[in-house]
């Protein structure tokens, strides 16, 4: 059996969230690789939107460090401005959006602005960027995060990107038009959300990771799905493409 890194598995899990012909708000780092992988496998007609204004159908030929790197401009479908792509997002034309986070909570609210830890000075983080917009306006939100207890908290100390707020129908009550977190991909597991209460539920653990390990690294009593599964490992083909896209393993080692 081929060996792979957990990050490679996360990229594969991200790619599997993209269906063919979908419009994807791509983001950077692992989601970007996930988008490129999906394009080369099961979703060749997916369309990528980037908040800097780039719209892409042909995957970039080179590894990107930022979405504004010249290889992401070369042979792009369109280079527009931010309002163009944010407008498409607000209209409801984006099927799936990817973001990361420093903290996430039971109802999928994400914090990338300021961390308040007990008895310590608050830690200032970079902020939203476009994350709050994607979380507010995409039909489905996929969050990708390291699975650590200090990051998976009962309540985030600051809601940068709204998930399901306090659960239930909170999103429609505050006026958000649609969406909400659909899946959280971590380096240990995959979480989904209860359709009614909107609470996170452990739906899949990665091969070689125990359920107890996941629960021990989650800062609230995490519900476990009745039909808990094991995450499908990457195929040979998926690994070959990831390593072709990121030959030095900059994002995936």
């Amino acid at each position: 059996m081929t060996t792979y890194t957990l990050r490679e598995l996360m990229v594969v899990a991200a790619a599997r969230q993209i269906a063919d012909e979908q419009v994807v708000f791509v983001g950077m780092r692992l989601p970007l690789l996930g988008f490129l992988l999906a394009k080369r496998t099961h979703a060749p007609r997916a369309i990528g939107l980037y908040e800097n204004g780039v719209i892409r159908e042909i995957p970039s030929a080179e590894m990107l460090y930022t979405m504004s790197d010249p290889p992401n401009i070369y042979r792009a479908t369109s280079c527009a401005d931010m309002l163009t792509v944010m407008g498409l997002l607000q209209q409801g034309r984006v099927d799936v959006g990817f973001i990361g986070g420093a903290e996430i909570d039971r109802f999928g609210n994400l914090n990338t602005t300021v961390v308040h830890a007990d008895g310590r000075r608050p830690i200032r983080l970079p902020g939203s960027g476009g994350a709050c917009d994607i979380a507010s306006l995409a039909h489905r939100l996929i969050a990708i995060m390291a699975h650590e207890k200090r990051r998976f908290r009962e309540r985030v100390s600051y809601v940068t990107s709204p998930g399901y707020g306090e659960g239930g129908d909170w999103r429609s009550a505050v006026g958000l038009p649609r969406g909400g977190p659909s899946v959280v991909i971590t380096d240990k597991a995959i979480l989904e959300f209860d359709p009614v209460t909107k609470e996170a539920v452990l739906s899949s653990v990665h091969p070689g990771i125990g359920v107890d390990d996941v629960l021990a690294h989650t800062g609230w009593p995490l519900r476990v799905a009745d039909d808990l599964t094991e995450t499908l490992p990457p195929t040979e083909e998926e690994l070959r493409i990831i390593r072709d896209l990121d030959p030095q393993g900059f994002w995936t080692r």
């Binding site: 607000q90 809601v159 958000l176």
Partner: peptide, 10 residues
């Protein structure tokens, strides 16, 4: 007007 950031601490 916009529909973003509703319910957020931002």
């Amino acid at each position: 007007p916009a529909r973003t950031a509703l319910g957020s601490d931002i």
